[in-house]
């Protein structure tokens, strides 16, 4: 069961990562002319259309991560500490705290994406960048910790 939950959590995280990266690039380095290349098309998405999906994906990924965390605490963290991998352990501690911070800013993020463009656009852009950082950090750290423990061991 844990493997299934972990895979679903990972898939949701991939979707979240894609959505938030699209959105962050669309506001921080928007495409100025008709998109021709893959990168330009990646940057030229209408960011507002991602906001609802982002909130739902974040909450689902967070909830599933919380469930898996109970198994991680016994099956993974114990091993990580026995191996004295303190940096990796610390990175995961940051992951849990950053995820909580992401939860805190989620209502504001949602509100400023629904507000008319121009009203507090800078706040909206910074919150999006912050969420992108949190999602990337949590994705990479989760992936690394999962690799340390190994699949099915």
């Amino acid at each position: 069961m844990w493997t299934v939950l972990l895979i679903v959590h990972g898939l949701l995280a991939v979707a979240l990562l894609g959505a938030v990266t699209h959105q962050a690039l669309s506001v921080w380095v928007p495409a100025r002319r008709p998109a021709g290349s893959f990168v330009a098309r990646f940057r030229s998405v209408p960011g507002a259309s991602y906001a609802n999906a982002m909130v739902v994906l974040y909450l689902l990924t967070f909830a599933l991560g919380g469930i898996i965390y109970t198994e991680y605490r016994i099956a993974v963290r114990t091993v990580v500490e026995q191996l004295e991998l303190w940096s990796q352990s610390g990175a995961f501690e940051l992951k849990e705290h950053f995820a909580a911070v992401g939860l805190a800013i989620l209502p504001a993020y949602w509100h400023y994406w629904r507000a008319p463009a121009g009203d507090h656009a800078r706040t909206r852009d910074v919150l999006t960048l912050l969420l992108a950082f949190i999602v990337w950090w949590n994705f990479l750290v989760g992936h690394i910790l999962n690799n340390i423990r190994g699949f099915g061991t």
């Binding site: 940096s87 610390g90 940051l94 705290h97 911070v101 800078r122 912050l130």
Partner: peptide, 21 residues
Amino acid sequence: GWTWVVAIGVMIAFCYLLRNL
């Protein structure tokens, strides 16, 4: 702007609190 200023401040605070790891 307090939404992101405080959030970033808290994230930095956690980095500091966990620095020994």
